[in-house]
Design a protein around this nucleic acid. Structure first.
Lengths: 134, 134
DNA sequence: TATAATAACAGTAATCGTTACTGATTACGA
DNA sequence: TCGTAATCAGTAACGATTACTGTTATTATA
């Protein structure tokens, strides 16, 4: 029953993701893996990204830009999205899971967790922007 | 330049949203408005939902289900998504904007805000589920 | 009030990210 | 080595959303 078989394409996808800290999309993964396996199919990339995230080996990030991003770092951490350049950056910060209790205080259902990301302007975009006259 | 003109379709969409607390999708809005304006186009619904959210009169919620939800309540509040039935419910809780400071502590960019929602099982789904044997 | 300019419309086609299908290939236990 | 089933490449289909086109309705102005 659905024994997982080795696949070099899946390994390549996993290895590629591990080298990246910028949370690439499926298409970016596809474009990069094609340099190693020129005949790989986009469908294979999607299937394996879904499989790996179902297995918990990678994270699927659904941000507000309508495209899924993938992250090889499955430890608890948070993300920042630059609204100027769209880049996704890891944040080093303490857990904010205490907000779950706050959310559950007046709520009759069961709260299991939260999805949180931060947005603003990244360092590079701050520097490249013209000075604001204040 | 681009003076806003009145449209009865847009008014109907706004009024419909104001009567609902369940954050309907564009298609749900479409199906309901059709009872009043049977010839309204889905494109008109999308165009006006986008226009209204650009004007800040409604909120566009991008959750993880791949479909946009819309909310006539533009005041600061948070949402809960039931992972069993998918319903979107308002939470009554204090602001959690203090997490922005926590996120900015070791981050060189500028943090403007956060997107946060909670997930779990709603009251109705808890009740309708078979008892867990513990 | 009549007219002209143009925002908004209905209907439909196109786009885009993603998923499903199909027949060929590959991994791997017996 | 062989059989079976997972995986593949290639491609078609899908669903949400957006863009296009010719028509209609709103509104400023004459």
């Amino acid at each position: 029953m659905a024994t997982l078989k080795y696949s070099r394409q899946r390994e390549a996808i996993k290895e590629f993701l591990a080298t990246r800290k910028d949370h690439p999309t499926a298409d970016v993964v596809y474009q990069n893996i094609r340099e190693i396996y020129p005949h790989i199919s986009l469908g294979t990339v999607y299937r394996n990204l879904t499989l790996l995230s179902d297995l918990g080996e990678i994270l699927r990030l659904r941000l507000s830009d309508g495209v899924d991003h993938f992250d090889a770092d499955t430890s608890l951490h948070y993300h920042f999205i630059c609204k100027d350049c769209g880049s996704v950056i890891d944040l080093e910060m303490d857990s904010i899971d205490h907000i779950n209790a706050s959310a559950g205080r007046n709520f009759p259902g069961q709260i299991d967790g939260n999805v949180t990301y931060f947005y603003g302007t990244c360092k590079d975009c701050l520097l490249s922007k013209p000075m604001e006259i204040s």
